[in-house]
């Protein structure tokens, strides 16, 4: 028994369809007969790649002309369902991303259905989906399902599924017109800035080096950046030092930040609050450096160093430099 149809929210950048979208497509194909995507922007540019991942149709709004993606896409989908131009899917899958959350939130109000956030697994239970959400820093898994008539709206954490190309002809591009947004549509993007980062992206890097409050001061974060550069790694951070303003939110690994699953995760001066663990304990190998031998991070570390990051990190970076 599979679902008839799932709609996946497609996000794309200059380098093609976003990984989170491809991850959700792999799962959607497993549980539904028909997988289609909807997106805010140009559908044609992604049609071939999406088709390769089993998508038969891409419903695209076309250029949003600076209007916010969340309200535009949600309004377009709700309008299309309401005027009968598309049949509502059994479920919507959206990534836990900046725009994914906006679309899901607006759509849930428009369709008057619930949203389930932060799921890391989805499976069929009879003819309905159930989703698994980690709570308490990933120590408990809560399985939930929708009780309303549907469609379901699931917000999926990145890195939950493996993308898989299956080969397929390009997806058909279907126009998804954005209706008049009225009073909800006032916000407009006037300018876009790209943050240049030299190394790999945090959620794609093979190695992540993260710093926490144990660094003691904002300028000590340079040690993290130095080691990351030496290893070709991405620098990350615990919530504590993001909250303290030492590094931007985009560096944050954890429940309220990014989920990372690199080959090696190096936690420096991070105690391992549940908030942080949920974002990194899926890493293949974990190295932790912390002064406090009782720090919870050691419970998940493959290699734990009880020591001062201010002493260990410079030596480590130097040793790697001299190789």
């Amino acid at each position: 028994m599979t679902l008839d149809k799932i709609w996946v929210f497609c996000e794309a950048g200059d380098d093609g369809v976003a990984t989170i979208t491809l991850e959700m497509l792999a799962k959607a194909r497993e549980v539904a007969g028909t997988v289609e995507v909807f997106c805010g922007g140009d559908g044609a540019a992604c049609a071939a790649e999406l088709g390769d991942h089993g998508v038969t149709a891409v419903y695209a709004t076309g250029d949003l002309d600076g209007r916010m993606k969340g309200v535009s896409v949600a309004s377009a989908v709700a309008a299309a369902i309401s005027d009968g131009s598309v049949a509502a899917p059994d479920a919507f899958l959206l990534g836990t991303t900046y725009d994914g959350r906006d679309v899901a939130a607006r759509l849930s109000v428009k369709l008057d259905v619930s949203v389930l956030s932060n799921v890391v697994d989805l499976r069929l239970d009879g003819d309905r989906l159930v989703g698994v959400e980690p709570v308490f820093g990933g120590t408990l898994n809560v399985t939930s399902r929708f009780t309303s008539g549907g469609p379901d709206i699931w917000l999926v954490r990145p890195k939950s599924f493996e993308p898989e190309a299956v080969g397929g002809s390009p997806a058909e591009v279907v126009d998804l017109p954005v209706p008049d947004l009225g009073s909800t549509g006032g916000a407009v993007v006037r300018d876009r800035f790209t943050e240049e980062s030299e190394g790999p992206k945090l959620d794609e890097a093979a190695i992540v080096v993260s710093g926490g409050r144990g660094l003691g001061a904002a300028d000590a974060y340079a040690m993290i950046e130095g080691l990351a550069k030496q290893l070709g790694a991405a620098p990350g951070a615990s919530r504590a030092i993001v909250d303290a303003g030492w590094v931007p939110y985009s560096y944050q690994v954890g429940q309220t930040g990014k989920v990372v699953k690199p080959t090696v995760y190096i936690a420096c001066g991070i105690s391992g609050a549940t908030q942080h663990l949920v974002g990194m304990k899926g890493s293949k190998n974990i190295i932790a450096i912390n002064k406090d031998s009782e720090a919870p991070i050691f419970a998940v570390a493959d290699l734990g160093i009880v020591g001062d990051v201010h002493k260990v990190l410079p030596k480590l970076t130097e040793a790697l430099e001299s190789r």
Partner: peptide
């Protein structure tokens, strides 16, 4: 905040 950096939004 955006995936790429930041957007300046007027609202």
């Amino acid at each position: 905040q955006t995936e790429a950096g930041a957007d300046l939004v007027e609202c």
